[in-house]
């Protein structure tokens, strides 16, 4: 069992947990957290799986580097939308959500 495989498996669990969180949690901020955890899981799978024989691979590493920066932009946009929504309606959960 190599580091790459351990973290790839952890990434799978994180992705599943984040996906369940996005679907189940009502609070918008909490969903943003779940979305970020999902992304981190995907990044770990991407790099961990490519390095499962413990040889560093720069290609997935560069892609994940790009992904992290895009993830923070998506998070900021999501938070801006959540804040606007809350300012207009005074709630921090989406209407019509069960």
């Amino acid at each position: 069992m190599t580091s790459g495989l351990v973290f790839a498996l952890a990434g799978v669990a994180l992705f599943a947990m984040g996906a369940a969180g996005v679907l189940l949690l009502a609070e918008l901020m909490r969903r943003v957290l779940a979305f970020n955890i999902m992304g981190s899981g995907a990044f770990l799978v991407l790099v961990g799986l490519a390095q499962r024989n413990d040889v560093p691979d720069p290609v997935p590493q560069a892609m994940v580097l790009t992904g992290i920066v895009v993830a923070v932009a998506a998070t900021a946009l999501a938070l801006a939308l959540a804040r606007r929504y809350q300012a207009l309606g005074g709630r921090d959960e989406l209407a019509g959500d069960d």
Binding site: L5, L9, A13, V45, L49, R52, N53, V55, P56, D57
Partner: peptide, 16 residues
């Protein structure tokens, strides 16, 4: 997915 990762053979092509 975890089981699939564990069963995966050595990579067919490596870019490193």
């Amino acid at each position: 997915l975890g089981a699939a990762l564990l069963e995966l053979g050595p990579p067919a092509a490596t870019l490193a």
